[in-house]
Design a binder for these strands. Structure first.
Lengths: 149, 149
DNA sequence: TATTGTTATACTCTATAACTATA
DNA sequence: TATAGTTATAGAGTATAACAATA
C-alpha cells in the first residue's frame, strides 16, 4: 500500500472479503493523513505518540515509553534526542542509568495543538462512520490483541 | 508499531478513543501473522497479492497489476523479475512495450496454497469477530476511501 | 547478571529521477 | 508526446549486535 493506491485503486477482486487487506489499506490512508496533518507542527506521528504518552505518564523513562508504544530502545534514542533538541521534553536523571521524561512548556503547547489536529484528522478520515460505529469498531479491534477484557 | 508492541503493550492511554491507532495496530498484527503464515511458501504478502491479482485478471500487464495494488512501476520490476525467475508467472509480449502476465502451473499451485493459508490466517487473527461483524467492518472500512457506493 | 541508553549497521519498503524502447 | 519497463538511488522505518555505565 502506498501513495499510488490512495489515488485510484478500488479493492482488487481477490481481497474483497479479506478484512486484513481492508485494515491495512485504511491504516495507510489514516497514517498518511495524520502525517500531513501534523506536518505544520514539524511533528511526525511517532513523535506525537511519544509526547502524548509522556504527557499521560510524566516521569517515565524512554525505555518505558518505548515499551508502551512498541518502539525499540535502539530506535528511541535518536527520536528522544531530537525532541530534547527541539526543547519539547526535559530529561532529569532518576539514577545513573535512566532519566525521567517530562514535557517542557513548549512540549505541552505542541502536544495540545497536536491533539486538536488529531481530533480534526479523525473527524475528516472517519467522518463517514457514526460515533457509535467507531466506538464499536475500536472495541472489536482491541479484542483482536486483548482476547480477554 | 513493531515486533515489541505485539508482545505486551496495552493501548497507551492517549489513544484509547482513537480509531486510527487501533486500525494501525491491528493492521500490523495481521500483516505480521500473514507474513509468517506465507513464509513456508517462500512467498511475501506483496508477492501473493500480485499472484492472486494475476489469477483474477490473466493477461494484465505489470503496470496494471501495480496500479490495482498501489505498487509503483519502479518497485514492480524487481518483484515481477523474482516471480518470473521462480517460475511462478509467465510473460508474453503483447506489443513491444508491455507483456501479458499469467500464472504458470506452479504459480497456480502456489496461489491456491497461499489462498488456503490466508483463509486460515484470517480465521486465526479475526476469529474473535463473528462473520457478520467482519462483513460489516469491511463495508465500513471500504466507505472510508470510497465515500460513494 | 541484568538494565539503560547509545552507536553502528543492515534490511526492507517506498519514493523520485532518468533512461530505453516503443506507441 | 506519452507509456511500459527498467535501473539507480535516496529516505524512512525497523531490526540485531555490541558497547559503556550503572544497578
Amino acid at each position: 500500500m502506498n501513495k499510488a493506491s490512495q489515488r485510484l485503486a478500488p479493492v482488487p477482486d481477490p481481497f474483497n472479503g479479506m478484512l486484513g487487506y481492508h485494515l491495512r489499506r485504511s491504516s495507510v490512508i489514516a497514517m498518511t493523513d495524520l502525517a500531513e496533518s501534523l506536518a505544520p507542527l514539524k511533528l511526525k506521528p511517532v513523535e506525537y505518540s511519544i509526547l502524548s504518552t509522556i504527557a499521560f505518564h510524566p516521569g517515565s523513562t524512554q525505555s518505558e515509553v518505548g515499551k508502551a508504544l512498541g518502539i525499540l530502545r535502539a530506535n528511541m534514542a535518536p527520536i528522544i534526542a531530537t525532541l530534547t533538541k527541539k526543547g519539547l521534553i526535559d530529561r532529569e536523571p532518576v539514577d545513573g542509568r535512566s532519566q525521567a521524561l517530562r514535557l517542557s512548556a513548549a512540549g505541552h503547547a505542541v502536544c495540545r495543538r497536536a491533539l486538536n489536529i488529531t481530533r480534526e484528522h479523525e473527524e475528516r478520515v472517519f467522518g463517514a462512520l457514526s460515533p457509535a460505529a467507531r466506538t464499536r469498531m475500536i472495541a472489536q479491534l482491541r479484542a483482536l490483541w486483548q482476547p480477554r477484557s
